[in-house]
Amino acid sequence: MTLSFDGTVIVPAADPDDGERTAAALKPHLGPHSTVVVVNVIEKGGGVPDKAPMERREEYADEIFDRARRALESTETTIETDVLYGTDVVERIFSEAADRNADAVAFIPREGSQLVQLLTGNVAQRLITEASVPVVALPHDD
C-alpha cells in the first residue's frame, strides 16, 4: 500500500533540521493537489517570561520554513507556513489542523532518551495519543 496525501497536511517542525527532514520524508507522498502547511509553535509562558526574545524566535521559525521549502522544491504541492503561538504545543497543532480542515498531521519523531522525553512532555507521544485528525509518524531517512 502506498501512502499519499491529496489534501492538507500539517507539518509541525521544532527546528530547521526537523523541518527539512520531515518535508523530505513527506515529499514522495504528495500530489499536485496537496497542501503542506509547515508550522512552528512558539510556546508562550502563560504569565511567565518567554524563554527567548520573540523576534529571535520568529527569525528561527523563518529558518525552519526556508529549509522545509527547499526540501519540497520541484513539487507541484502548495506550500504554506505559519508561526503559531500557544501554551500547549500539541493542543495548538490540533487547533490549527481543525481550523484548516487538515487531512492529517505528519511528523518524524525526534530521538531522545526516556528522561529527556519525560522532562519535555514527549510531544510525539501526545501527538499520537491525543490526535483529533489522523497522525502519520514518518520514518527516519538515515
Rank of each mutant, 00 (worst) to 15 (best):
P32Y: 07
P53D: 15
D66S: 14
G45A: 08
R100I: 03
R70D: 10
A71G: 07
V89M: 02
K44Y: 13
E111D: 14
E55L: 07
L115H: 09
A98D: 10
R110Y: 01
P49D: 14
D82N: 11
R92V: 11
E91V: 05
R100F: 08
D50E: 15
K51P: 10
G46T: 04
T77Y: 03
D99A: 14
K51I: 11
D88G: 03
F107H: 00
R67N: 08
V38M: 12
E91I: 03
G86M: 04
F94K: 00
D82L: 12
T81F: 03
G45S: 11
V116D: 10
D50A: 14
R57L: 15
M54G: 06
I42W: 07
R57K: 13
G45I: 04
R100N: 06
R100A: 09
P28L: 11
T87C: 05
P49R: 08
V37E: 10
V38N: 06
A61V: 03
A52N: 07
E111L: 12
A68C: 09
S74Q: 11
A106Y: 01
G47W: 06
L30G: 11
A106S: 05
R69D: 08
K44L: 14
S74C: 09
T78G: 10
F94Q: 01
L30Y: 09
F107D: 00
R100E: 09
P49K: 07
T77L: 04
V48K: 08
H29P: 11
D50S: 15
D103G: 15
V39I: 14
I108Q: 00
A97Q: 00
I42M: 11
E73D: 12
V41D: 06
E63T: 13
S74T: 08
V116P: 05
V89A: 04
I93H: 04
Q114G: 15
T35F: 09
L72D: 01
N40Y: 13
K51N: 13
V39M: 05
A98H: 07
E73Y: 08
L84P: 02
V90C: 06
M54F: 08
G47L: 06
Y60G: 02
A71P: 04
I42G: 10
V90R: 00
L72N: 01
T81S: 13
G31W: 02
E43F: 03
